[in-house]
Write a protein that binds this DNA or RNA. Sequence first.
DNA 1: CGTATCTCGGACTAAATAGATCCGCAATAT
DNA 2: ATATTGCGGATCTATTTAGTCCGAGATACG
Lengths: 161, 161
Amino acid sequence: MLSIVKLPVSTEWLLHCATSLAQLEPGATASAAQLADYYDLPAPYLAKQLQALVRAGVLSATTGPRGGFRLARAASEITLLQIVEAVDGASTPYECREIRRQGRGALPPEECRSICVLAEKMAGAHRAWRASLAGVSLADILAELPAHAPERTRSRLTGRT
Amino acid sequence: MLSIVKLPVSTEWLLHCATSLAQLEPGATASAAQLADYYDLPAPYLAKQLQALVRAGVLSATTGPRGGFRLARAASEITLLQIVEAVDGASTPYECREIRRQGRGALPPEECRSICVLAEKMAGAHRAWRASLAGVSLADILAELPAHAPERTRSRLTGRT
DNA sequence: CGTATCTCGGACTAAATAGATCCGCAATAT
DNA sequence: ATATTGCGGATCTATTTAGTCCGAGATACG
């Protein structure tokens, strides 16, 4: 279950990775190996998850030497929701299977024209969750970090200032 | 995922079962077998899930002939959140593992006194989700059903009017 | 008051999904 | 030309979910 019931660990990884990439100078990149080293994470698995962010259009990647990942657009235009849904999908946690139409208690079709009341309430909760995450951009996150954080991140992540 | 990311099928089952139990006359019960027949669900597995609601204090069960399940309190005092969290746990979907303190980029302890900014934003989204579900009671659900629904449910579920 | 029956309760077993890893291919800058 | 990097597929393992079973306890009836 948002058993949800539980988000995978990689969600935390990618939120932090995106935050770090947002602190690089415009155009600069960091490789999957550098990010894995920066957070002490298993490099192969992290690389695979980063690809999901590229497919979702949140990051852009360049291959070859001195290649790596960078934000695909300005930090103010990337929300936490986009990152989270890129990692573990945008599907609704609660999936209505219309059990109201099965069994002895099956409702007549005319009462099933509109969406099930319970499904509607669950969908409303999901909308509230999404709206909360959609209201926070990476720029908002950076604004809450200490002033010296970006330079330190650049130094430790890419080895350059 | 809440993995979320995906909620188990039983969540839908129990939301509907609780709604049906809320339509019975005060004190009346319905057995697991009756509920399973009413929705055409596997009886043993449904019984197992109903026990979770009993443990959570949402339902109360009586054994013996003519026993079964009933609401543990008034429908207006049972929220969708209580049901959902009884089924698949009340844990936060996003679990912060403090990767900010690991690897080359490990932050000094004095910067980790307060909660990680990303974890706080994710927790805020979860609070929004919970608040949405906590604002809907079973009585609210019943109010949106057709006027003739309760009598029909009683008839088909327990065989009595 | 005893007995038989009906109910919940928890333990146990399979199946599916997600987590995690590895290896070969394509692309690019040096 | 070579080395480095991302990309995708195939694979293996582990956790969760789905489903089943049998025993303990309580109630109603004789």
